[in-house]
Design a protein around this nucleic acid. Sequence first.
DNA 1: GTCCAGGCTTTCC
DNA 2: GGAAAGCCTGGA
Length: 295
Amino acid sequence: MDYTIVEEHNRIILKNMEDFEPKHIFECGQAFRWYVEEDGSYTAVHGGRVVNVKRQGQHIIFSNTNKEDFENIWFDYFDLGRDYSKIKQTLSKDPVLREAIKFGKGIRILNQEPFETTISFIISANNQIPRIKRSIDLISKGFGDYIGKFRDRVYYSFPPAHVLAQADEEDLKESYKVGFRAKYIVESSKMINEGRVDLNSLYELPTDKAQEVLMTLPGVGPKVSNCILLFSFKKVDAFPVDVWVKRVMEYFYFKKDTKVDIISKFAYEKFGPLSGFAQQYLFYYARELGIGKKK
DNA sequence: GTCCAGGCTTTCC
DNA sequence: GGAAAGCCTGGA
């Protein structure tokens, strides 16, 4: 973790940044709104700003930003205060993780906006990534604010709870392609907007208590709540078990069909406070290799 | 209280 | 035609 931060006109450069690979970060399934440019860089909106991220040799370049936004927004969003080399070293004691980390060595866990993450993962249930992305884009364009243009593409913020609480269920279903999840989106937005669920209070709660609160939202079960905890509340001991993680865990550790509860317990005993990182390396590994997938 | 089958929208392979 | 970053409901 020995990178240095350099400021240039309209961009910030992290020199000699090792534990940061845009492809790994944006394609390990934690975020759905990063757009891949032709040059392999990625562009998205967060915190009311459009930013573009690219690796160039040993350096990471953040374009369309400045030092103030980097310090106030991007440093926390990209989890830049955390030493991933140390985490990888610890997890590599496990031979399976050692291999998984080789594939996703540049993964970092983003600290995303809680409401956007909640709705995004409600949409993810029994869904496919291309369609999840499309729904989130449509919702941002239809309900969010115009933020700016970058390389001829326009970017919109994700709408706040009070806006989606007013959305029409049928409209969400038909025009935003969210299917049966429409009623979950509207009702969860209402609960959050009315303060029946206070997302901001979850930062202060231990992981299991925060999960209990999240699971009172309709459309939020064990898997979705763990994703929200890990990807927006810094609960890095959360271990979301989806079909890919289930497969990769069964393939390497259990050698047979195993219930999600058993897998979760096993993971927490094995990886403890680093479970969330282990999950991301395993997920990326399983998906890139298609481990356990039927042909 | 736990466990499990069936249903859910629509797209992608 | 089966599967998809699952969840909810009702019944045993």
